[in-house]
């Protein structure tokens, strides 16, 4: 009887856990479509390219923010800090499961931070790579 209750609880909770990540998968799907339009030779997002982007030192953005690591720390598993001193939860999805689950928020922060670091908007491929890298962490 006890086992059944535990199983029932898990079954009840399962849709909840699934629904947290659902927007992320949707968003990645959208990015994938856009990436294909953007580049004919696109064959899927890459953890490696995402990692390179995360650690890239850029000179084309604002001087105060040369890299993602400026605020997000040198490891996606570690908490970061805004330049004003506020803590930022780790970027890795394993550490912060709510990462990339609010599309408005993702768009807002990509728009702002790509401009701050790279001096331009990110491409769909870059966004997809970035998320894929952080999902792998």
């Amino acid at each position: 009887m006890r086992n059944i209750i535990i199983i029932l609880i898990f079954l009840l909770l399962f849709p909840l856990t699934a629904s947290i990540s659902a927007p992320r998968d949707d968003y990645l799907g959208q990015l994938e479509k856009m990436a294909k339009q953007f580049d004919d030779s696109f064959s899927g997002f890459s953890v490696e390219r995402g990692k390179e982007l995360y650690f890239r030192k850029s000179t084309t953005g604002k001087a105060e923010t040369p890299s993602c690591t400026t605020c997000h720390s040198d490891s996606p598993l570690k908490a970061g800090q805004t330049r004003a001193g506020k803590p930022i939860d780790p970027m890795a999805v394993s550490k912060t499961p709510s990462r990339f689950t609010d599309i408005e928020k993702i768009e807002k922060w990509f728009r702002r931070n790509c401009k701050s670091v790279l001096g331009r908007e990110c491409t769909p491929i870059e966004k997809g790579d970035f998320i894929t890298f952080l999902m792998s962490q």
Partner: peptide
């Protein structure tokens, strides 16, 4: 806001 203390902080 697009240049907010050295960062892009633009909003909708």
């Amino acid at each position: 806001l697009d240049n907010h203390f050295g960062e892009d902080a633009s909003l909708d």
